[in-house]
């Protein structure tokens, strides 16, 4: 396995003439869980979309497993090993649960325990009870489970999670984090995480990257961020109670 699963070098991207990200450098190693923090509108979701190629990058280099992605379309980047759970669920509403789970390009990547339909249903038994139900008629939490399960079915090397547990009940949220943390980490896979819950991020992630106005303003281990209340206040708007 390559030393780094994902490498970004001096990535600049944005929408048309509006630049959102400036010279972003980021590396993610096997088994790592990295948190992407910042206030709303600072470019977190744009960075995830740029990694996948949904938003084309204007400058810089993306590498997955050491392979330069260039201007490859998002399906090629996904096949190279990037999984994505987008903000706002985004299931296919008129396909049923089973169809939503199988409409992925299957790739086991030589994993000893690849994710498949049975494993996803073990993680989310509630989906198993609704296999023939149209995804658009599921509750918000169930749709979220479906979106996570679908991304797991691609057996990603790096999973990009954009507020993936929003809408899940607290117990289910804990369960999802537990499974993702242990299963992916043990298999040498990695996670890049954006979440509204900073406590959860500090607890789950090994290290954090803070974005402010499209630039990386701080990076380091989660433990170190705990000791920087001033940073937390300035870039995340969090008071001393969170430190």
């Amino acid at each position: 396995m390559a030393e780094q699963l994902l490498e970004l070098e001096a990535i600049c991207s944005g929408y048309g003439s509006i630049q959102v990200l400036f010279d972003i450098d980021l590396t993610i190693a096997p088994g790592e869980i990295v948190g992407l923090m910042g206030r709303n509108g600072m470019g977190k979701s744009t960075l995830l979309k740029t990694i996948l190629g949904i938003v084309p990058h204007q400058q810089g280099t993306r590498r997955v497993m050491g392979k330069v992605m260039g201007n490859l379309p998002s399906h090629a980047v996904a096949r190279a090993g990037i999984g994505y759970v987008p903000e706002g669920r985004q299931v296919f509403p008129t396909l049923n649960v089973r169809e939503n789970l199988v409409c992925v390009e299957a790739n086991h990547r030589g994993l000893s325990e690849p994710w498949n339909l049975d494993r996803v249903l073990d993680l989310f038994p509630r989906l198993g009870q609704r296999m023939n139900q149209l995804a658009g008629t599921l509750s918000g939490g169930e749709q979220q489970m479906l979106a996570i399960g679908r991304a797991l079915m691609t057996n990603p090397l790096v999973m990009l999670l954009d507020e993936a547990t929003e809408g899940l009940a607290p117990l289910m949220r804990q369960e999802v984090w537990h499974v993702l943390q242990h299963n992916l980490r043990e298999a040498g896979q990695a996670i890049l995480l954006v979440d509204q819950n900073p406590e959860a991020m500090l607890r789950i992630c090994d290290r954090q990257v803070i974005l402010n106005n499209g630039q990386v303003v701080w990076r380091g281990p989660s433990k170190m961020l705990h000791q920087e209340p001033e940073l937390m206040e300035r870039y995340l708007g969090l008071g001393a109670t969170h430190s």
């Binding site: 399906h75 987008p86 396909l95 169809e99 992925v104 691609t154």
Partner: peptide, 18 residues
């Protein structure tokens, strides 16, 4: 299934490697 999913959202399907 893929053809029907693509009719709903092509970009979303591409992020699944299709």
């Amino acid at each position: 299934v893929i053809i029907r999913a693509a009719s709903q959202d092509e970009a979303r399907l591409a992020t699944l490697g299709v």
